[in-house]
């Protein structure tokens, strides 16, 4: 039950530290949206280059939970679907592999907004 926790903690933590340092050390302002977009894109590129899977194998959730893992999911989805369906797979693969996360987030966003009001 407790195997892999340390790896997940350290790798997940370090991935966040990179973003924090990027925000602290750049002279101009980097917004959260910029960080999130960069992480997804960089994650997808690393994944396509075959560099992200080893990190997932080592750190488990520590690599899949950060948004770079989301990029990895999108990239692998596209690559796998291309292998199965050819050209059309390039267009269906990414979003279908990420569908679970996106859909749950949207549905919960909607229902939470119905149930709660912002407290400010």
């Amino acid at each position: 039950m407790f195997e892999g926790l340390l790896q997940a903690f350290i790798v997940g933590g370090l991935i966040c530290v990179i973003a924090q340092l990027a925000m602290e050390l750049t002279p101009f302002q980097i917004t959260p949206a910029h960080i999130l977009v960069s992480y997804v894109t960089i994650g997808a590129v690393l994944s396509a280059a075959g560099l992200y899977q080893p990190l997932v194998d080592f750190a488990g959730a520590g690599a899949t939970v950060p948004l770079s893992g989301f990029g990895h999911l999108l990239a692998q989805g596209a690559i796998e679907k291309v292998a199965e369906d050819g050209l059309i797979g390039a267009f269906t693969g990414g979003l279908s592999s990420a569908a679970l996360g996106i859909t749950v987030a949207i549905i919960l966003g909607f229902t939470t907004a119905m149930l709660f009001n912002p407290k400010g």
Binding site: G12, G13, I15, C16, V17, A19, Q20, A22, M23, P32, A33, I35, L36, Y39, V65, P66, L67, S68, G69, F70, G101, A105, I106, L108, G109, T112, A113
Partner: peptide, 16 residues
């Protein structure tokens, strides 16, 4: 900071 933003929870939080 980035610790709560970069994981998928930050993505979910921005939507919710």
């Amino acid at each position: 900071g980035a610790g709560s933003m970069v994981p998928i929870s930050g993505f979910a939080n921005s939507i919710v």
